[in-house]
Simulated scan of single mutants.
Amino acid sequence: MGDPDVTTDMTIIEKTFEDVKNGHTHYTDFYGDKELRQEICKYYEKQYSYSVAVDECMVTTSGCHAMWLVLESILDDGDEVIIHEPYFTPYPQQIELTRGVPVTLETYEEEEFQVNTERMEKLITNRTKAVIINTPNNPTGTCFSKKTLEAIATLAKKYDLLVIADDIYTLFSYSEPFLPITVLENMRERTITIGSFSKDYAMTGWRIGYVIAPDYIIKTMKDVNENNVFTAPSISQRAALHALRNREKIQPKILKEYKKRVMYAYERINKIKNMSVMTPRGSIYLFVNIKNTGMTCQEVTNLIFEEAHVLVLPGNAFGTCGEGYIRLAMTVGIEKMEEAFNRIERMNIFS
């Protein structure tokens, strides 16, 4: 699973519990702790030279909750949402839960799992409301190029679509700095950005995320959320505030550790018979090609579990075009990874 073994930095924990002792145990503003929302706005200004108003930001109870709130707020029954495949497993169900229709666009390793907008355009109908993009990507590990983002933006403007940017792994962009699609020309009015503290700050258990969007969408989300969880946990919101304020101290250590793990795994995989993987571009996952085994991804997953006692996920868990792949999560240290790869290497199908 994508739950890092790295514990939340003690700076965040200690400062948060000081806030708890000082009384931050109550409901916050329905849109989220104003101090935190202001800090998120400051972050986008400093990181991307992108201005965000406080009323264009809402704090949510995790990124997944943010996605549900967004879809519930923008979709009419029967509206279609395009998702690029392989995709984060909950996307289709999240769309269906809000009475929408998921439409999948396959991406391929030979195209570096980039979105092909010529194929995307053929999927657009008069019921298409939005496109979900996820870069750096779970599960493939790819990062969309500026050219890809610009092509998606062109389509969004041409067909008056919303773009839901699931920006969960922004820290883990190894080949070049992360570029949010919302900063592209004329995209702020049609982009809904979902952010999370889970991976970028090793805060999965705190369940805290946020949305940046036009103010009328934020207001609709707030109205929906009043009938759901009301507000995100006040304690977790304070933790997120301290994470942002101390990010220059906290994040380099996290990035260094995961980049080291990803590169170690990449080198090991490409030395194993019947396995291959693209050069890592981003995220904390590797999408490993096992087609040369002649077996299905589920068969390979089962065999690795039974013979090597290593748990991986079959690629088809992320959509049909994930067949022929397995996903590895870099959520354990090098020592455990070394043992895992040593066991896999001894298996008959990989030796």
Score class of each variant (00 low, 15 high):
T7C: 02
K15M: 14
F17M: 12
F17V: 10
D19P: 10
D19E: 15
G23S: 07
Y27R: 15
D29P: 10
F30R: 08
Y31R: 10
D33G: 01
D33A: 08
E39H: 01
E39A: 14
Y43K: 01
E45S: 12
S51D: 15
S51L: 12
V54D: 14
V54L: 09
D55C: 00
D55A: 08
S62C: 15
A66D: 00
V70I: 05
L71T: 02
I74V: 11
D77V: 09
D79A: 03
E80W: 05
Y87R: 02
T89S: 14
T89R: 13
Q93R: 13
Q94M: 14
L97W: 11
L97T: 14
L97I: 00
T98F: 03
T98Q: 08
R99F: 09
G100D: 02
V101R: 01
V101P: 00
V103S: 04
T104R: 12
T104M: 08
L105Q: 12
L105D: 10
T107F: 03
V115W: 07
L123K: 07
G141A: 08
C143Q: 02
C143M: 05
E150T: 09
T154N: 05
L161F: 05
A165S: 12
D166L: 04
D166H: 15
I168E: 13
S173N: 04
E176C: 10
P177V: 03
T182D: 09
V183G: 08
L184K: 00
N186I: 02
T193N: 15
F197P: 02
S198R: 15
K199G: 05
W206L: 12
I208M: 11
Y210G: 06
Y210P: 09
Y210V: 11
V211P: 06
A213S: 07
I217H: 12
I218P: 06
K219T: 13
M221D: 06
F230W: 14
F230Y: 13
A232L: 06
S234E: 12
I235T: 03
S236H: 06
A240W: 01
L241I: 07
I250S: 03
P252Y: 14
K256T: 15
K260A: 15
R268H: 07
I269W: 04
I269Y: 03
I272S: 00
M275Y: 07
T279G: 04
G282S: 04
G282Q: 02
G282V: 04
Y285M: 07
F287H: 01
N292M: 12
Q298F: 09
E299A: 06
V300N: 02
V300W: 03
N302H: 09
E306S: 07
E306D: 14
E306M: 13
H309D: 10
V310E: 08
L311H: 03
L311V: 15
L311K: 14
P314N: 13
N316G: 01
T320L: 00
Y325A: 00
Y325G: 02
I326F: 04
A329T: 15
K336N: 10
M337H: 02
E338Q: 15
E339R: 05
A340N: 01
R343F: 03
I344D: 14
